[in-house]
């Protein structure tokens, strides 16, 4: 029973702003994320949620503000003061990024096994049998049949591609995963299955995650905390059930009342 009150946060965001010329991508975002937490970022198109995610995941440099990450050695790293190679290393080992379109997060012309094994090979794994075995383990965990290990993702359904993308990220045992609309474009039943999988994995592996979505139902199922964005600003944040059951901000109330069922 670890005392979480004294556990330092995994990610600290301070006054994060990203401008595109005079246009605001996101502005003055501040929050902290602790180990084991899933934070959902919701907003409609143009709210800045994807911009925010990209700044957090080191894919896009912010105009101002800071992102601090606490690594495995308990060092508090200022993300944008690191060298590019250190950042890239972090992205490959400590983090995972699950893209909305699985094609952006997979190598479509190599097999599923190679896709999953790549990160292992990138950090020096040199035993084919072991790499293949580990890839197989992860395929089972994301509920893809083992006999598809040598198939290319082009022959997979959308849901399977997404699950493969997740496996590819998890193989390096990251501590923090960034997800951009992970269930976007999937059939409803496939979405449900994927969310169940994600929930289970997050609990089992003690992951933290930042999940961007426009779908409030996804946040209800997946996120502990919720941030609502509108026009680049965070207009409300709190525990997911509180934000959805007792929304304070007019925009949040509008969002919640607009959906058919939370």
């Amino acid at each position: 029973m670890t005392d979480t009150e004294t556990t330092p946060p995994l990610l600290e965001v301070e006054d994060l702003t990203r401008l595109y010329g005079s246009r605001v991508g996101c502005q003055n975002v501040r929050f902290s994320l602790w180990p084991g937490e899933i934070v959902g970022i919701v907003g409609e198109s143009g709210s800045g949620k994807t911009t925010l995610l990209n700044c957090l995941s080191a894919s896009l440099e912010p105009t101002s503000g800071s992102v601090y990450y606490r690594d495995r050695l308990d060092r508090r790293l200022d993300l944008w003061r690191l060298s590019e190679s250190e950042r890239r290393m972090l992205m490959r080992t400590d983090w995972g990024i699950v893209h909305q379109n699985p094609r952006d997060g997979l190598r479509m012309d190599v097999s599923a096994g190679a896709n999953i094994g790549e990160r292992l090979m990138a950090v020096g794994a040199r035993h084919y049998g072991d790499i293949r075995a580990e890839a197989g383990t992860w395929m089972r965990r994301v509920e893809i049949e083992l006999d598809r290990i040598d198939d290319r993702p082009t022959s997979f359904s959308g849901g399977m591609q997404q699950r493969l993308q997740i496996a590819r990220n998890l193989v390096s045992k990251p501590r923090l995963i960034f997800m951009d609309e992970p269930t976007g474009g999937l059939d409803v039943s496939v979405q449900a299955r994927l969310l169940d999988l994600l929930r289970g994995l997050v609990t089992d592996l003690g992951l933290s995650a930042v999940v961007v979505t426009h779908d409030l139902a996804v946040t209800r199922l997946l996120a502990h905390r919720l941030m609502v964005m509108r026009r680049g600003e965070v207009v409300e944040h709190g525990l997911t059930d509180q934000v959805l059951d007792d929304p304070q901000h007019p925009y949040t109330q509008l969002l919640v009342s607009s959906i058919l069922q939370t």
């Binding site: 009150e5 602790w34 084991g36 905390r225 709190g238 525990l239 509180q242």
Partner: peptide, 27 residues
């Protein structure tokens, strides 16, 4: 903490400490 009160305190004994639910960090 499912509803957000506008004022007041909710003190709870948690891990041998007293915590104000309304002011505590999300984690």
């Amino acid at each position: 903490a499912n509803y957000l009160p506008q004022a007041g305190r909710i003190l709870v004994r948690h891990r041998d400490r007293t915590v104000d639910l309304l002011k505590a960090d999300p984690h």
